Each structure stands twice: as C-alpha cells, then as structure tokens.
Computed example of a mutant assay.
Amino acid sequence: MSEIKPFRIAIDQADLDDLKTRLSRTRWPHEVTGDWSRGVPVAYLKGLAEYWADGFDWRAQEAELNEFPQFTTEIDGQTIHFLHVRSAAPDARAVLLTHGWPSSPFEFRNVIDELSDEFHLVVPSLPGYGFSTPVHGPGWGNLFRVAQAWTTLMDRLGYERFGVHGTDAGAGVAGILSMIAAHRVTGVHLTGTSAGTPFGPAVALDGLEEKDRERGERFNRFQADGLGYLQVQATRPQTLAYSLHDSPTGQLAWIVEKFAEWTDPAKELPDDAVDRDHLLALVSLFWFTGAGASSAHAMYEGMEAYRQLSQGGWDEGGEAPAGPPRGIAVFAGDTTIRSLQDEPLDHWSEYATGGHFPAMEVPELFTEDLRTFLRKCG
C-alpha cells in the first residue's frame, strides 16, 4: 500500500517575486468596447492584477490554508493531494467532496469547519489541479479513472461507506462513484449541474414553467456564446498552455471570466460574489502549480472520453439500475431543470442566490443543504 504523507503548502519566495515581476510587466491589449461583452475588460483586470501584485497577501492565505490537515498519496503512479479533516463526533460518517474546474479543494474552505462538526471530510485535488500535479502520463482527465482512484483513496483511509458531493466536473465523478461503488456510497449530492450537455441539443422551451424557461434560455445562450473556453481546452490544450503557464495575467483573466459568468447573476463583479482574497488564492494555486495547463489537458481527455462513450450509445437503452439516494441543489446562477432530469431524485432544492461556486458564494446555504441531504441518507 502506498504511503500517506503529511503535506504543507510552502511556495518559494522566488516564485512570489517572479509572480510580482511578471504582473508588473504585463503587456496590456487594446480593447474595443470596455465592457464584458467580449471578455474581461482591461480596467477591471488591471485593478485586480495590481491588487494581486501589491495588496494580496499570499503568505496569509498560505497560513490559513495550512490550517487544514493535508496529505498526499500515490495512486496508479499519480500523486494525489487531499484534505482529510476528521470530526470529533463519535458517530461521524465520512463524506467525499470533489471540486470542478476552475477550482481546487479549497473551494470548500468556508464550509469545512461546520461540516466537520458532524462528518469526516475527505477533499481531494483532481489530477492536474493544485498539488495533484504534475500529471504523470495521459488518461487522468477520464472521470471514470478518477472515480476509481477515489475508491482507492477511501480504502486507504479506512472508509468502507461514505457519502459523496461533487460540483461541476466533480459532479461527474460523484455520479460515476454511485455506479462503480454503489454498495459503498450512501448518497450523492450534486451542485454545478446544468440543463443539458454543452455540445448536446438546445433546451426545448415549449411547455416549461416560467422559472424553468428562464433557466433553459440561459443554458441556450451559454451554448451559443459561452463555450469558447471549453472548445479550446477540449481540442487544443497545449496551444493554450503556453499562455496560461507563462502569463499570470492571462491565467487570471481565464479564471475570472468564469467567475463573472457563473456566479450569482445579481452580483455585478466576480469579487462581489466571492471574497477577493479567496478568488486570488485560487488563481495563485493555479499559477504556482502550473495547473492552468494540466487542467486544460484533463478537460481535453475528459471530453474525449465523453465523446467515445456517447458514440458507443452509453446513454441509450434500458433503465439504469437503482443506485444510492441522489440529490441536487440548484442556485441562482445554475440552469438545472428538474423536469429534464433523467434519473429519480430523492432531494431537490432551489435557491434564489448563489451560483456555480455555492460553497464560496453562499456557504451557509450550501452547508445546510448538504447536511440535510446526508442526514436523510442515514
């Protein structure tokens, strides 16, 4: 059995100095409109980059993140970084939390303390993200392989039964876990889902109730003009990698655009929706670990696996066997529509605030929803 090793974040000062120098030497492009219609506007990004260079305190963030117990282990030749926060509750059950793109386990930093009052928490970094880098060989973008690795991780930690939560790509991992480890998973809780698949058909709006129609319209707009990031990463990740790996400003813009588009629609700017220092800590993790490039490759491989499965007719035929209880929480920035769900649901929640990163945006709502669902699972 591979060893589980304690881990602490310790970014070299030379890397911090290099980041500041690179930010100061940004070659700012000319812009045409000055608004968000063509991407992140220069004025906004300049202000954020200046704060990243001269106001943001990485060492304070590093110290705060290191308050969470962290570890690494090797699975199938790949280093996997994870948080493991054990509860003091004598009857605590285990819960596995998986983040998506563009994120890290620290997406859950605002909810860990409260959830760990009741649950043992295991929060891994997806391969190619954060400190689960570098990636040793192709294939780690395949979510089936990731789900299999997570079962191995839970074995090593001694958890025979566990609940799972996933968001974005992590929702895909959670769903696969409910199939390949149905006898072990007590329940599957999802956020960051959507009304359909990115490259699938548009949502048919006829017959939908008003709130669902609005979500369907938003999803269709996303398909029409919001898939550029996915098209590039799913087809030419290496070409994109040079910019993300060489320019912190480029990496900043690439992530900030998604926070602008996917967080609570009522929030004007990304750092209105989430704490600015937490947002920049996330971007910093991508920068220091080179995860911009490796997560793009993971997305490429994930989409390749999805296309192969789709061509093989994986989603056609008879009914799927019954699995563990399944719940979905939908926040204001999401597009998920209950009537379009093709699997039975044991838990459904809708919220008028929050968005694609609810653990960062509305931690109290996220915590209570997850806790309510897991308690129902027994």
Rank of each mutant, 00 (worst) to 15 (best):
V362H: 06
G34L: 12
L177N: 05
A281R: 06
S24V: 02
R93N: 08
D113P: 09
A352I: 06
R221N: 07
D15H: 11
A293G: 08
L157P: 14
A296V: 02
L279I: 13
A182L: 08
E210D: 14
E304G: 13
R338H: 13
R8S: 13
L177R: 00
G312V: 06
F106P: 07
D35H: 03
D206F: 07
P6W: 00
A174Y: 06
H84C: 10
L23W: 04
H245Y: 09
G137L: 07
T152F: 03
P69I: 01
L19K: 05
Q61P: 06
E343C: 12
L230S: 08
D212P: 12
E50Q: 11
S243Y: 13
D12C: 13
I112P: 13
L16T: 01
Q341I: 14
S247K: 09
G226M: 01
F144M: 05
E107K: 02
E301G: 10
G378M: 10
S24H: 08
G166S: 11
T249Q: 14
G175I: 07
A181E: 04
R109M: 11
A169H: 05
E343I: 09
Q78T: 03
A293T: 01
L153K: 01
P265E: 03
P324G: 12
G170W: 02
W36A: 03
L19Y: 06
V185E: 05
A293C: 12
Y129M: 03
W52F: 08
I180W: 01
L285K: 08
T186M: 15
G226P: 07
L23A: 06
R93Y: 00
P358L: 00
S247G: 11
A281H: 04
M303A: 15
Q341N: 09
G302I: 04
I176F: 01
D12Q: 12
G323T: 02
F357N: 00
E316P: 10
S247Y: 03
A63M: 11
M299D: 07
A147V: 00
H347R: 08
G378A: 14
H120D: 15
G196Q: 07
H30N: 15
D246Q: 13
V256G: 14
F366C: 05
W52Q: 03
H136S: 15
I255R: 04
D206Y: 07
R145C: 04
D346S: 11
A174W: 03
Y51E: 10
L115T: 05
V164P: 07
Q78Y: 00
I11G: 04
G139F: 08
H165A: 13
R218M: 12
R22Q: 09
